[in-house]
Design a protein around this nucleic acid. Structure first.
Lengths: 259, 259
DNA sequence: TTTTATATTGCAATATACTGCAAATATCAA
DNA sequence: TTGATATTTGCAGTATATTGCAATATAAAA
């Protein structure tokens, strides 16, 4: 008669564990209570199964359930820079905009730092920055004249902020500025979490003949409290996506150059 | 507000923490209140998660939230530098001259960097510098306001030099400045190998009510090409020697305070 | 300063983990 | 088949972990 129930009741340990691994592979997670309910065993058995599978490195047991190994693998394999590959591909596009003899500004942030890393040797440049990490990176290139815009240094970002920085920026004119942003939205433009940083970036954009935004696509269509500028203040926006990608449609009607 | 965090009905701690790390890596910072709201947990849990992730070096906890580790590579005291012990003993003497609320200038160089390392916590200070390593070291102390005097950055010394730096220094007044020197002689005063550095140091001394020279005894009675100032322009000279030491006799007749 | 926001601490409620044990089941040899 | 043995499972009691709350301390902001 009810062979299904019989099958479940007679489910072997291996079958159960396979089902658990499958679920974890599929959804990256599982709860012990779900195992107990769906496979019709006690919590204890579920726990013992998960414990074994953890020992066999099939998954990782955590309090209350289990998660897939890939879940944690992403965190530990590339712990330093999130979305590193995307940032490199953005930087590769951006570096083509830099020409011999230019006077450029380079913002802080990991994407801009990738850009600095990719500037070819033997290219004579004058680079301004407010970011200490970027400045240090620039100094490793002997053909670049590095000028740091001073001021009060933000402890967190290690960049110059404040009135004095803004004032100094008002007296300079860059051929190109390469900037990042915390958040970008087609309607609300570039926004940031920090008011001081917004003031600094405003001054940078004012000082630039052309402004290039480097921005991984995950930041698209997000916004925060303080506004740096409208999206139209940007001349070129570079993401890791192909310029034709549908995710960029909202930014296509603007007079922005997508790269 | 950002929308990238997906809320799962029953979230495992590890999932929550991964979401936090992702957000921090993406936008460089996060608020505890945002975590609590978006992940539907209490502020306390958000705080505890951030605390754990900080311990695991996945991010850095700050007041009210967390920021990305980014480039906050901490520099630790390196005993391999030349005459490290002597420099530490000089720095120990110098740190006693620093008082709460002072506005001081700290020069570049390994001895000055030791001084920065020894500044006690909880001492409110405003510190100017032209040295990027010193600035980075100063930033590790949360009670110090750090102001970097910008300008063209010298590749070797990683300090600001040039006319713009000198000009900025002419508009400031320090209570104390702590400087190093390449060479010092009782007759020829402080001298350097590099003309640009001399110009910068001249400006620093001019901007200082009191100037303190940090100098290991091996540099005594040596000289070089470009002169920074007379020995009498220094108010206090600190070496690793006891002030009574005979090696300091030549400097005893000057109106210098020996420490 | 005063005011507000955030941190810290201790505590209680709940959820989960661990341990030992006994019953149920599977395995295998005679 | 039968019975000895090993494995698996469920249960109960206890230990630990997680979370939210509240009171207090501390830091930021006005």
């Amino acid at each position: 008669m009810s062979t299904l129930i019989i099958q479940i009741q007679l489910m072997l340990k291996e079958e159960r564990q396979l089902a658990i691994v499958n679920e974890v592979e599929l959804h990256n997670r599982i709860l012990l209570t779900d195992i107990a309910e769906k496979l019709n065993v006690s919590i204890d058995t579920a726990r013992r199964d998960v414990k074994e599978l953890d020992t066999l490195n099939k998954l990782r047991k955590v309090h209350g359930g289990a998660i897939s190994l890939g879940f944690t693998g992403l965190m530990s394999s590339n712990p330093n820079i999130y979305a590193h590959d995307k940032k490199v591909s953005i930087a590769k596009k951006a570096v083509n905009l830099i020409h011999e003899g230019s006077v450029i500004f380079i913002d802080g942030g990991t994407t801009c730092q990738e850009l600095v890393r990719l500037i070819p040797p033997k290219l004579k440049l004058t680079c301004f920055t407010v970011s200490m990490p970027v400045a240090l990176q620039l100094l490793t290139n002997p053909d670049i004249k590095v000028i740091f815009i001073g001021g009060e240094i933000s402890r967190e970002a290690q960049i110059s902020i404040g009135a004095y920085t803004v004032h100094q920026l008002s007296e300079i004119r860059f051929d190109y500025s390469f900037i990042g942003t915390g958040y970008v939205d087609s309607i609300h433009g570039l926004t940031e979490f920090d008011w001081d940083i917004v003031q600094m970036k405003k001054a940078v954009i004012n000082a630039s003949k052309k402004t290039v935004l480097l921005c991984i696509s995950e930041k698209l269509n997000s916004q925060h409290q303080y506004k740096t500028c409208d999206i139209n203040s940007i001349n070129t926006m570079i993401t890791e996506l192909a310029p034709e990608n549908n995710l960029l449609n909202l930014y296509r009607n603007q007079d922005i150059h997508l790269l």
